[in-house]
């Protein structure tokens, strides 16, 4: 019954009500926006579980930051800013964890397998043989040790596409090195 009375309210009004302690306002905001947040996160994170966990964190952050919300500003960009910053924080945290995760280190070795020290010593100029997006992706992966999610963020693409860019770029580089040796 109470939910019905809030249903017609704008997001900004709901946020105001939530600040005053109306729990049902939070429930409605979650109903209205959780799909968008999950859709945004799912495109950027490979595991659905990670996206779902992060969705909860986004709304938890919204709850904790509710008193900082300024009613004169639209709600949607505010929520998006929280979502994006939570996602970036998640990537940073994972990168720190990645650095000590032997499984990830192994994967990195696999990706860069065939790249001996002499090959890497060609320097970054060898990357000039690659198309610009592959060049950037491989550079970030090999030299900056970025994760695929970070590369995706930087190149405004999906992690899967970032993985493909790196893979194709490395394949092409190997061909170039092979040709040089011959």
């Amino acid at each position: 019954m109470k939910k019905e009375t809030f249903k017609d309210k704008s997001d900004e009004d709901l946020m105001e009500s939530y600040k005053m302690g109306e729990v049902v306002a939070f429930e409605l905001l979650f109903e209205r926006h959780s799909g968008k947040v999950l859709s945004y996160l799912s495109k950027r994170l490979q595991a659905p579980k990670e996206a779902q966990d992060l969705l909860q964190e986004v709304f938890f952050k919204l709850h904790r930051s509710r008193h900082q919300y300024n009613r004169t500003l639209p709600f949607s960009p505010w929520l998006f800013s929280i979502t994006r910053s939570m996602w970036i924080d998640f990537l940073k945290k994972r990168r720190l964890e990645d650095a000590t995760d032997p499984e990830v280190v192994d994967k990195l070795v696999q990706v860069t397998s065939g790249l001996g020290s002499s090959e890497l010593s060609f320097g970054k100029e060898i990357l000039d043989h690659l198309p610009s997006n592959q060049k950037e992706a491989v550079g970030l992966r090999v030299y900056d040790e970025a994760t695929f999610e970070e590369i995706a963020l930087k190149l405004s693409t999906s992690p899967e596409n970032a993985r493909q860019l790196v893979s194709r770029g490395l394949k092409r580089l190997k061909q170039i090195w092979k040709a040089r040796e011959e």
Binding site: E27, F30, G35, K36, L38, Q52, Q56, F80
Partner: peptide, 25 residues
């Protein structure tokens, strides 16, 4: 660019498991 994608995304295609809100609550 990302905000536009976010704002225009069709949330109808995404199913949010009810357990998520329950955990959050």
């Amino acid at each position: 660019k990302e905000y536009t994608e976010f704002a225009e995304s069709d949330s109808g295609n995404v199913t949010v498991p009810p357990s998520l809100f329950e955990n959050l609550r």
